[in-house]
């Protein structure tokens, strides 16, 4: 039962992008087309879940027992950077077209605050390993949901007349704000 609450909370109520403000850079940068948004979500999900597992184990078996909790930031980000390298190499071999489509955004997953954010959050929330995996997977789905919804909206925006000053980033941000408002409606479910 706890898992259902974690899942609903991570995807809707406390959506990582629209209410916690993590993962904004790719959110604004990769969300111009629905297809790239979906591809990005897949890559992020893989990195996020794997990174959470590895950083969790490192926290419990290395950082805590040796009382070097202050090394958390350094070790966590190194784990994430290495995982992203691995994903890049894998993707090049397995799906060169997706690799091309994601372009420079793939290495940028390293600086995706959502990935590091989730790794730190599960430690702060005191989840066990299973809960951490569920949380990270659900968060990634929530990230994808926000991304895909936003991409859909932006594809439509491209077909509409926007006042000159608002074109580009401003209207994207306003749209994101409205989307965030919509998601606020989920508050109180859990």
């Amino acid at each position: 039962m706890e898992y259902i609450i974690i899942i609903i909370s991570a995807i809707f109520v406390n959506n990582i992008v629209l209410s916690q403000f993590l993962g904004i850079c790719p959110f604004l940068g990769v969300s111009k087309k629905v297809s790239t948004a979906v591809g990005m979500t897949g890559a992020v999900t893989f990195v996020m879940v794997l990174a959470t597992i590895v950083t969790y184990l490192i926290q419990k078996f290395v950082l805590d027992p040796f009382d070097i909790g202050f090394m958390q930031t350094i070790t966590f980000i190194l784990v994430i950077a290495s995982l992203v390298q691995m994903v890049e190499i894998m993707l090049k071999k397995v799906s060169p077209s997706l690799y091309q489509a994601l372009g420079v955004f793939l290495p940028l997953i390293t600086t995706n605050c959502a990935v590091l954010g989730v790794a730190i959050m599960v430690i702060q929330k005191n989840y066990n390993l299973m809960e951490s995996v569920v949380f990270s997977a659900a968060t990634a789905i929530g990230f994808g949901l926000a991304l895909v919804l936003f991409a859909g909206l932006r594809e439509h925006l491209d077909l509409v007349k926007i006042p000159k000053g608002m074109q580009g980033t401003p209207i994207a941000l306003i749209t994101a704000g409205l989307l965030a408002m919509a998601f606020m409606g989920f508050a109180g479910i859990v």
Partner: peptide
């Protein structure tokens, strides 16, 4: 949360 997006959007529009 939404206010952050809105405020930033308008500020950038003005700056543009």
């Amino acid at each position: 949360a939404p206010g952050a997006f809105l405020a930033l959007g308008y500020i950038i529009a003005i700056i543009n």
